[in-house]
């Protein structure tokens, strides 16, 4: 069993539990122990884009210090946490002036040796780079054969590419390869890397609804049966807000939106109560039952 420090973040502990529980259980069955960091604090939720804001780097720095005491990797799953922690680590590693300013705010963590070598990784990077998608195919218990999944590439995991150093956001493949590894059929669609409207839902809900609807329409047009995401905010916009889409447009057909880890859970035959489908607004159960996957 490999053990990594794991940072679930606030959404995964509350509103996006389905993303979290599946992750821990599924990874356990693949031989990985995700150890939740003790007494973690918020990742900051938003990476500070203004150059003169330093205080917002303190929280991520604290998390990075904590993780570094256990391992040289820190596993995240929520796209916002991934984005903030990965970019913060890059800034703190490369910009000594900022690092100093941040450390001025810290007490017990303010050590001489900044954990420069700590890598903030996304859970899917374990699946891809450590286990390998080919091996994953060997390890799953149930193939998602016949399930047409449209993988959605959220903004925060991929952009800005120079800071995230993840995958080219103009032609991302990682989730498609993941779906294929699980035996499903990955459907490429035009809007796969367009923004869902994100937090504009708070202030201009009609604008973000439009953004999300375009994404679902685009996936539907090429024959997708469900969407895949690993971002709680995308999930909210694309799943929960289908309620409004149905009201707004008579011909709108709802489509289930899976969390990355839910699909992994199905393929690894986790018990149904751990998959957290009750949190999905559009229930994937009818689709899964029809395909004999549950």
């Amino acid at each position: 069993m490999v053990s990594y420090p794991y940072f679930p973040g606030c959404a995964l502990s509350t509103k996006a539990k389905a993303l979290d529980i599946c992750a821990r259980e599924a990874m356990k069955s693949l031989g990985y122990d995700l150890k939740e960091i003790d007494d973690w604090t918020c990742c900051g939720a938003v990476f500070p884009l203004a150059e003169d804001e330093h205080i917002r780097l303190v929280s991520p720095a604290r998390t990075i210090f904590k993780a570094s005491k256990i391992s040289d990797k820190l596993v995240t799953l929520c796209s916002a946490c991934f984005n903030v922690l990965r970019r913060s680590q890059k800034v703190l590693k490369e910009n000594l002036e900022k690092r100093q300013r941040v450390q001025n705010y810290m007490e017990e963590e303010a050590v001489e040796n900044y954990p420069e070598n700590l890598r903030v990784i996304h859970l899917i990077e374990i699946l891809k780079d450590e286990i390998g998608f080919e091996n994953l195919t060997q390890k799953i218990k149930k193939s998602l054969k016949g399930l047409k999944i449209a993988p959605f590439y959220d903004c925060l995991t991929f952009r800005p590419p120079k800071e995230m150093e993840f995958e080219d956001p103009e032609n991302p493949r990682i989730y498609s390869n993941f779906v294929t590894a699980l035996g499903g059929e990955a459907i490429d669609f035009s809007y796969r890397s367009e923004c869902c409207g994100a937090h504009i839902s708070v202030s201009n809900p009609e604008v973000s609804l439009e953004c999300s609807m375009r994404i679902l329409d685009s996936a539907r047009r090429v024959g997708a049966e469900a969407l895949l995401t690993s971002c709680p905010l995308c999930h909210y916009n694309l799943d929960a807000r289908q309620k409004e889409m149905v009201e707004k447009r008579i011909d709108f057909k709802p489509m289930p939106v899976f969390y990355l880890t839910q699909l992994l859970g199905i393929a690894l035959e986790l018990p149904e109560n751990l998959l957290g489908f009750e949190k999905n607004y559009v229930s994937p159960l009818p689709l899964l039952k029809e395909r004999g996957l549950l």
């Binding site: 959404a11 939720a45 994100a198 839902s201 708070v202 202030s203 809900p205």
Partner: peptide, 27 residues
């Protein structure tokens, strides 16, 4: 930009924290 008082309770209940924080932080 916006008045926090006017935000709908439903949205605040359902939207993940990252959305609220990102939203509030700008507004």
């Amino acid at each position: 930009y916006t008045d926090i008082e006017k935000l709908s309770e439903d949205v605040l209940d359902e939207i993940p924290q990252q959305g609220i924080i990102a939203g509030f932080r700008k507004f």
